[in-house]
């Protein structure tokens, strides 16, 4: 069995397609600066290309997230994370009365505010799970912590959000 080499263009491209978006989001959820996040992704993949002979295919994911995370820790100025809501429900919602829509809008704003003010360790877990639909086991590999720790952060994030939003 021959090992896939990261130095092959096709493999490298496949790796990019698999991980670059999650990587970008991962950094973005931490720092809230999209430009910075995308720059870090670029730098991280350049580094991967330079070191392609040294990085085993199996270790690529942890390599990418570690390098990106280090870059984040080193240089990123932290900003507020602002996400948009998908408009997929809009069609269904048109029949609903305007008061409900207004209330819904208010809730969305509150939630966004609450997410933005989460500690970044909670935020990255919460968003990777809810937005990027990553399983806890995947998140644990990305961040480099145990599944149990991911679950704790996830629960904490929910409690924090719940407190910030209040009863609805």
């Amino acid at each position: 069995m021959t090992m896939k080499s990261v130095c092959e263009k096709e493999t490298y491209k496949a790796i990019f397609h698999t991980y670059s978006e999650t990587l970008r989001n991962f950094i973005y959820y931490k720092c809230g600066d999209l430009q910075q996040a995308e720059d870090i992704v670029q730098d991280t993949f350049i580094k991967l290309w330079k070191n392609c002979a040294k990085v085993l295919y199996k270790k690529v994911r942890s390599y990418l997230f570690t390098v990106a995370n280090n870059a984040f820790l080193n240089e990123v100025a932290h900003q507020k994370v602002v996400l948009e809501y998908q408009k997929s429900n809009v069609k269904e919602s048109t029949t609903i009365d305007p008061e409900f829509l207004l209330e819904e809008k208010e809730f969305e704003e509150k939630l966004n505010e609450a997410i933005a003010s989460l500690p970044y360790r909670q935020r990255e877990v919460f968003l990777l799970s809810r937005v990027d639909k990553k399983k806890y086991s995947e998140i644990s590999e990305i961040i480099g912590i145990t599944v149990k720790a991911v679950e704790k952060r996830m629960s904490l994030a929910l409690v924090t959000l719940r407190k910030k939003i209040g009863n609805v």
């Binding site: 990019f16 978006e21 970008r24 989001n25 973005y28 809501y85 937005v131």
Partner: peptide, 23 residues
Amino acid sequence: TFKRINDKAQQLKSPSYDKEAAF
């Protein structure tokens, strides 16, 4: 409240990302 938070959060989307352009 939790259900609503979860439901809403799942409607969130990350900023758009053009893989081909990025590559």
